[in-house]
Design a protein around this nucleic acid. Structure first.
Length: 348
DNA sequence: TAGCTTATCT
DNA sequence: AAGATAAGCT
């Protein structure tokens, strides 16, 4: 059944035609959006519904419907601020293949969307071992989430571990990129937005961040898929704070708050990373916050224990992740791993 | 019915 | 493409 269709002769349409009370579309200016965002943040993840936002925004003339509509755009990462609109230019010869019904992000955001998505392949995520973070809810199933279905279908082709868990604050892939300004994102210890990107406004992140997308070996990073044109080189790994993931032989207690690697930046924003196995050389690594930018400059708050791999070098981080990843894998998988991590290094 | 989401329309 | 709206679901 078709829905959402504005039928020609509907009462509402006639109303609008006859009474001419049609309003001008609300322009979601930066200011208005900022206000919206403030309320969204105030409400917190999982509690942002049109009604609540409406009540808190208190903007005369702004309706719940409009807020709902804006929310939809934002959830789907389909809204660009007026400023961003000026900067966004698609590569030539390409129309927009970004169908609004095919969200770019696999990460649900806000409101009633599921707040957790775990895709742990081959590295079985043992639910019993997951400790819930303070703001996590595991109660919402992944069902009816087209994002999740789509990503799963991709990820299942690969035999590498997926740690894909909603961080306990906003993720970075949304028009609310300014979420980096939120304190919660700095769980590991006070990483400033500026130290990550050297910039602070949201639109400048756009194009380099496609949060929470886990690309695995075999997936072209720059495949010509215009849908991903703006995020071709990005990889973000978000794992829950406090989660424990276990594999077959190894027990990997990887607890990474936020890792993102992209064309310009390698951002490791990890808290209490523990990687241990019966064989691996690494244990109890604590990464407070690391940010390595395109210039290979390492930023603050990297804590390192003596005797551990040097995590101030992106290559070492990759190498470390790689080492822990191949542990216990069969040769084929190791090859995949190698390709995958090589790709990461290459991108750096 | 209200509230929310989604699909579709302008 | 941004914003509005119809319609489905709970």
């Amino acid at each position: 059944m078709q829905r959402g269709k504005a039928r020609e002769g509907s009462e509402k349409n006639r109303d609008q035609i006859n009474v001419v009370k049609r309003r001008y579309p609300t322009k979601w200016t930066d200011d208005l959006h900022a206000k919206f965002m403030k309320v969204v943040q105030q409400l917190g993840e999982g509690r942002c519904y049109p009604k609540k936002i409406f009540e808190l925004m208190q903007v005369p003339g702004l309706t719940k419907i409009q807020i709902g509509s804006h929310l939809q755009k934002c959830r789907r990462n389909n809204w660009r601020s007026p400023k961003e609109q000026r900067y966004v230019c698609l590569p030539s010869g390409q129309g927009s293949s970004n169908d609004s019904h095919e969200p770019r992000s696999n990460f649900p955001k806000y409101g009633a969307m599921p707040r957790l998505q775990t895709n742990v392949l081959n590295l079985q995520c043992n639910p019993d071992e997951i400790q819930k973070g303070p703001e996590f809810s595991f109660s919402t199933p992944n069902t009816n989430n087209s994002f999740a279905r789509r990503e799963n279908s991709i990820q299942q082709q690969f035999n590498l571990p997926q740690l894909q868990v909603q961080p306990h604050s906003f993720n970075i892939d949304n028009p609310f990129n300014d979420s980096f300004l939120l304190d919660q994102n700095n769980v590991g210890g006070g990483l400033q937005h500026e130290t990550l990107f050297g910039i602070s406004s949201s639109q400048e992140l756009q194009g380099s961040i496609n949060g929470n997308t886990n690309y695995r070996p075999g997936l072209m990073f720059n495949s010509g898929d215009h849908d991903h044109a703006q995020c071709a080189y990005n990889l973000n790994l978000n794992a829950t704070y406090g989660a424990t993931y276990s594999s077959r032989r190894i027990v990997s207690d990887i607890d990474i708050e936020n890792v993102s690697i992209n064309q310009y930046n390698l951002n490791v924003n990890a808290d209490n990373v523990t990687i241990c196995s019966d064989k691996t050389m690494m244990s109890n690594t604590y990464v407070g916050n690391a940010a390595i930018n395109g210039l290979r400059a390492t930023n603050t708050n990297v804590q390192q224990y003596i005797g551990e791999p040097n995590i101030s070098d992106p290559g070492n981080i990759i190498a470390t992740l790689y080492e822990s990843d191949i542990e216990g894998r069969d040769p084929n998988e190791k090859e995949d791993c190698e390709a995958y991590y090589n790709n990461m290094e290459y991108l750096l």
